[in-house]
Amino acid sequence: MKFFLIGDKETVLGFSLAGVEGQVAESETEILKILREMRRRSNIGIIMITERLAVRVQPFLKSMLLQKGGPLILEIPDRQGSLRQKKMAEALVLAALGMKI
C-alpha cells in the first residue's frame, strides 16, 4: 500500500519527487470527492492532507478516522508551517482526560 496526498500545488509537487502520488485540490467539494474516491482504492494505506485543506472537511475526516478499515488519515503542515490551533489528537485527549498532561 502507499501514500496519497491532497494538497496545494507546491506540496504535491514536492512529495512527487519522493514518488508520492497526489492531487491538488482547493474547494470543499473537490476535497470530499477525492477523499471518497481514494477511500475505495484498496492500495492506499495513508491519505495525507495539508492542514489548510483539512480544516474545510473536518467532520468528514473525523468520521473516516473513527471507522476501522479504510485508509488512515494524516494531516500535515504545508510549507507555510503548522497551524497552531490544529491539534486534533491532543485536544481530544485532553478533553477526554479532563486535565492537562
Partner: peptide, 30 residues
C-alpha cells in the same frame, strides 16, 4: 530535496499510526 522528502515518509507513517490510534482511543475513553 529529494532525499529530505524521501526520509520524511517513514516518519510520516509512524505519525499516522500514533495519531489515528490516539484519536480512536481518546474518543472511546470519552
Amino acid at each position: 530535496t529529494v532525499h529530505l522528502f524521501c526520509s520524511s515518509l517513514k516518519k510520516l507513517a509512524k505519525l499516522a499510526e500514533l495519531e489515528v490510534s490516539l484519536i480512536r482511543l481518546a474518543t472511546e475513553l470519552k
